[in-house]
Computed example of a mutant assay.
Amino acid sequence: MASRLNPYISFNGDAREAMEFYKSIFGGTLALSTFGEFGNDGDGADKIMHGMLETDDGYTLMGADTPPGMPYTPGDNITVSLSGDDADVLRRYWEKLSGSGSVSVPLEKQMWGDEFGACTDKFGISWMVNIGAPQS
């Protein structure tokens, strides 16, 4: 298997909801494991120790709840970039990601010829979407 770059996002107790939200956008197979499944019977046993979404388009997104006692810094250390030339699919992702979040750069044609937008979703995660300009 070739090397892959997989974004891994830390959440503050809402990893299950976030990963299910991303599955509703991208589709695919979502696998979630809780801390309790790995022997933690105390507080947070039902929280996500590891989640992995593998989409039919070949994306892999991983995430987990931050374990108790560890610092949580939402969204300032990760941005997920989606790019390609399937404009309809990428626009659909953009609408769903930005719809309940905030837009910092509207999805529109940029000086380099592509459509590009940047947003933060309702979980505080930053996203960039780049739709490649048709090649002539």
Rank of each mutant, 00 (worst) to 15 (best):
G58A: 13
S24M: 09
I9Q: 11
I131C: 01
G101N: 05
A64C: 14
E108A: 15
D114Q: 04
S10W: 13
R91H: 10
G51K: 10
G44N: 09
G84C: 02
N6V: 15
D88R: 06
V129D: 01
F116I: 04
A87H: 07
D46I: 08
D85P: 07
K122S: 12
T34K: 05
N12E: 12
S81K: 00
A15I: 05
M52D: 04
T29N: 14
G124I: 07
L90Q: 04
M19C: 11
I131K: 03
E17C: 05
Y93I: 11
I78C: 08
G44I: 05
N77I: 00
L32D: 12
N130A: 07
D114M: 03
T79K: 07
H50E: 07
A118F: 00
G39V: 09
I25C: 10
D114P: 05
W127Y: 13
G42E: 08
S33H: 14
L97P: 00
S83K: 01
G101Q: 06
S104Q: 12
D57A: 14
G75C: 05
M52E: 14
A15V: 11
A45E: 05
D56N: 11
S81L: 14
D86S: 01
G75Q: 08
A118M: 15
G36E: 03
D88S: 09
S10D: 08
G42Q: 12
D14W: 01
W94N: 08
M128G: 00
F21W: 11
A64S: 15
F26Q: 02
I25W: 07
S24P: 02
P68K: 11
P106I: 03
T34F: 05
K23R: 15
P68F: 12
N40F: 09
R4C: 01
P134L: 10
E95N: 13
D86I: 00
P7L: 02
C119E: 11
P68Q: 11
A15P: 12
A18W: 09
M62Q: 12
G13F: 09
P74S: 09
D57C: 04
P106D: 12
T55S: 10
D56M: 04
P106C: 02
L90H: 02
G36P: 05
L53V: 04
S33W: 09
